[in-house]
């Protein structure tokens, strides 16, 4: 069980809802993964008012908690407006805040992110900021009122996995009490297991599942990997050693050489 801002969730995997072959496959993937939170974007779908309503109602019918996002927003104003629209459409104050700073890498604009987080926290939102692994930015986001952080481990959709383990470790070490969710850049289940073994509280992913040959099978695989990584972290992982250590004691054997 995972306590996230006072809500108890059965799974530590959060799943995005974009790019699936069909809404039916998305629904099966959500079930197979065991996820209890899905993210959904609004920016492009809300052109023409509530024209995305048919898709949004499919998302609501999945029966899991919804974390709307501001994907595709490049300015504070755009992100704040999208967050307010999301609150109205989905009836939740949760918002995954994205303010994109670089069109090519989809790197967050951390300055705009802090500013937008401040505005939205003041307005009563529970802000889940999509950020980098920078500790100073993380502190600013917490100061702005965020109660949870979502660092990337690689650029969105890159499938590179954790490319800077040192930075992730250091983030976990600096913010032991803050829920940390690795968001973006995961490519395969072992990547998810790796960051969970580092002690991260949860992971959020989309492309790695949606663009797999069999999204439902891949969703199930990620669900297992997240569980495995978490259980490994709690169980205390053996640190690497230089010397070989036999698992069967040699004392008592007939010949001790």
């Amino acid at each position: 069980m995972f306590d996230l801002l006072g809500t108890t969730l059965p799974s530590r995997l959060l799943l995005g809802t974009a790019q699936y072959p069909s809404p039916a496959i998305l629904a099966d993937a959500v079930k197979a993964s065991g996820t209890s939170v899905v993210t959904v974007s609004l920016r492009r779908e809300m052109a023409g008012g509530r024209a995305g309503e048919q898709f949004w109602s499919l998302i609501r019918s999945l029966g899991v908690r919804i974390l709307p996002n501001t994907a595709g927003c490049h300015s504070v104003k755009e992100a704040v407006m999208t967050a307010k629209m999301a609150r109205e459409v989905f009836g939740t104050n949760w918002i995954k805040l994205e303010v994109i700073g670089n069109h090519d890498t989809l790197q967050p604009d951390v300055f705009g992110l802090v500013e937008a987080a401040h505005v939205l926290c003041e307005d009563g939102f529970a802000v889940f900021p999509y950020t980098t692994d920078d500790l100073v930015v993380a502190e600013r986001l917490l100061a702005a009122g965020c109660k949870v952080l979502m660092p990337w481990c690689a650029p969105i959709g890159s499938a590179l996995g954790p490319i800077n383990i040192m930075a992730l470790r250091s983030m976990r070490g600096h913010f032991p009490e803050v829920p940390l969710i690795v968001d973006a850049g995961l490519g395969r289940p072992s990547h998810a297991a790796t960051v969970m073994e580092l002690g991260f509280d949860a992971v959020l992913l989309n492309t790695a599942v949606a663009k797999a040959a069999d999204p439902v099978g891949m969703a199930r695989a990620f669900g297992k990997a997240v569980e495995a990584g978490r259980e490994a972290f709690i169980s205390g992982i053996l640190e690497p050693r230089d010397a070989a250590v036999p698992s069967t004691p040699t004392i008592g054997r007939a010949v001790f050489s």
């Binding site: 492009r44 779908e45 052109a47 023409g48 008012g49 995305g52 309503e53 898709f55």
Partner: peptide, 12 residues
């Protein structure tokens, strides 16, 4: 785009 809007093409 998951939308039923038939409005004009967007700039983006």
């Amino acid at each position: 785009i998951e939308s039923q809007s038939a409005g004009p093409v967007t700039a983006r």
